[in-house]
Amino acid sequence: MTPEQTEIAKAKTLEIPELYLERYAPLVDDVDKFVASMRTPLAKAFRVNPLRAEVADVQDRMARYGAELTQCQWYSDAFVCEGIDPNATMQSFLGHIYVQELTSMLPPLIARDELTSADLVLDACAAPGSKTTQIAALMRDEGALFANEPNFGRTRSLKGNLARCGIFNATITNYDLLQFPAGLQFDVVFVDAPCSADGTVRKSPSALRNWRPERSLKYMNLQKQLIRKGFELLRPGGALVYSTCSLSPMENEVVVDFLLRNFPATVEWTPLPYFHLTPGLSEWEEHTFRPEIKRAARIWPHHNDTNGFFFAKIRKSE
């Protein structure tokens, strides 16, 4: 068996904890499809880096290597790649492409309009740099992008990826976000918060190992602090994009609801043509959320053949 066949065989027999299904089955539209998608490995995807390469040139070179590419209808720079490992190509080495999960491309993409004209942008939890390099590309490498990574060890991969992609507008900082100096007022802030990652099972089946719903509680407390700090660093009228790769309402709707109840913030629905987004939950267990939470978006793995994900684009009142 090839490594790919082994991976598929292993995924098919993936044990999904009962507690996990108990938690998420009531939230999905089709439990069978949800479970089936969790048992299907995720195909590799990449994004063309427009600062370094043309889409047509990349398509041509990847085809010569034997790659079968499917261009995403919702983002013309994004491709699903089968047949070869895109990481093992000259295009990856040169930063012409960035191998990145499709859902990870969503937060910068939904702020595309803001990024085009932004002077000052903060990526608050930046390593390893997938979103950061995409943000820089959407800023056309203009303005100033602060890429903050609290873990010093992880700034190494961030630095390497920014260099590989030829980014000139980035400054790497190494603050615990809660200690990030006041004074700068950002046009756009990204908080891709540390999370339980229980939406990434298709990529990392180990996310289910020792899965416990209580883990989300630990993350939720940190996430509330991070979203609040990110919001404080935002200028009035600016946009904050909060995202996680968790499916847990505790790490998503509960966190955004906390912000809406305590700060002058609103959520904006951001449709993506050809991409199936599910509105945020209006209630869950004992929680009733602010109605506008429905303008946040859940991504279920079986809807777009991706990992699970959550994002909310939040506007700070003028």
């Binding site: 002077d119 490498d141 203009e142 400054t171 790497i172 900082t173």
Partner: peptide, 19 residues
């Protein structure tokens, strides 16, 4: 390191721009 010219203040930056 080389960086696009911008008047934003770089605070205790670990890295500014591209080596």
């Amino acid at each position: 390191y080389m960086r696009n010219t911008h008047d934003s203040e770089a605070r205790n930056a670990a890295v500014i721009g591209l080596h």
